[in-house]
């Protein structure tokens, strides 16, 4: 066994998994609070890339900018994208999911896919049917870690994902709003009695999840240098799988699931054959669920049929 190669692939897996993990967080939060598989989440992530591109173009950002200006442009881009996507999340929840809340379990699933198709088509109308190049403004030099090399962009991806995950954990566990979210997820009726505004809390959940997706959109735009209106579909599917793998509703689990899927994908590419990556991911998922029916970190749900 070539351990250097293994290590190198591990780095690839972590950077790939970090992106899945951030998207999975949004899935798992929404699921945790209203038990909805929000299929539109992947498209919110892609829309984030498009908004980021538009912002960068407006700011006139390019690779020749001075470091300070560049940092400023990036900060503005992140802020704008995250806010726009957060607002989009609230709008989606308000018009496509809230009217159906409590009516029929599968109806919101269909509206979610309806929203997903609509977003995809709008993005296509906006920037055309072909992949759109994303300006390469962050240089990508390589650093050596002993025998391993890691690109700067990979570090950015991993680092920013970790920061977002930590921020989310702090938010959920250390703030009043986070507490409200947790309470609502556990028992909305009790939460309501305690004076928590359920509608606001759910909207906030969508806001936070979409903000994370938007940020992931900016990061992947910078990392892959290309955005395409249909990218969100597969990314969303994989991220959803990650959320379930980790135990849906559990933010730590979603992150763990994301990294695990990234790891499975790269190791399949290295040792089995790239074309089996999807099969490997879902096989592991099924195996895990057979032995742990509520995912890796999921708790046994109370009976609720």
């Amino acid at each position: 066994m070539n351990w250097v190669l293994f290590g190198q692939q591990l780095i690839n897996g972590v950077s790939l998994g970090a992106i899945y993990a951030v998207i999975a967080l949004g899935y798992t939060m929404v699921y945790g609070i209203i038990e909805l598989i929000n299929f539109a989440h992947g498209d919110v992530y892609t829309a984030g890339s498009f908004v980021a591109l538009a912002t960068l173009v407006l700011l006139g950002a390019s690779g020749h900018m001075a470091a300070a200006a560049l940092a400023f442009a990036l900060a503005v881009t992140f802020a704008v994208t995250m806010l726009v996507m957060g607002a989009t999340g609230i709008v989606i929840e308000r018009f496509a999911y809230r009217p159906l809340r409590g009516k029929q379990r599968l109806a919101p699933l269909l509206t979610a896919i309806g929203v997903s198709f609509s977003i995809e088509n709008l993005l296509q109308l906006w920037m055309g049917p072909s992949p759109v190049p994303f300006p390469q403004i962050v240089p990508n030099p390589f650093f050596s870690l002993g025998p391993l090399t890691v690109g700067q962009m990979q570090l950015v991806v991993i680092g920013s994902s970790l920061v977002m995950m930590a921020a989310l954990q702090l938010f959920v566990h250390r703030t009043r709003l986070g507490k409200a979210m947790r309470a609502t997820a556990q028992d909305w009726m009790a939460a309501e009695i305690m004076g928590i505004d359920i509608n606001k809390t759910i909207a906030l959940t969508f806001f936070v999840g979409s903000v994370l997706a938007g940020a992931a959109g900016v990061i992947t735009g910078l990392f892959y240098g290309n955005i395409w209106f249909i990218n969100g579909f597969r990314a969303g599917l994989i991220a959803f799988t990650a959320a379930v793998l980790g135990g849906i509703g559990n933010t730590t689990g979603a992150a763990l699931g994301g990294f695990l899927i990234g790891f499975i994908e790269v190791m399949t590419a290295q040792y089995v054959g790239f074309q089996w990556a999807t099969v490997a991911v879902f096989s592991v998922l099924i195996l895990v669920l057979i032995f742990r029916p509520t995912g890796l970190l999921g708790q046994q749900l109370p009976e609720r049929t």
Partner: peptide, 12 residues
């Protein structure tokens, strides 16, 4: 190797 549909990350 074959590429799974929709792959974006080819680093591995």
């Amino acid at each position: 190797d074959g590429i799974p549909k929709g792959t974006q990350d080819f680093h591995a």
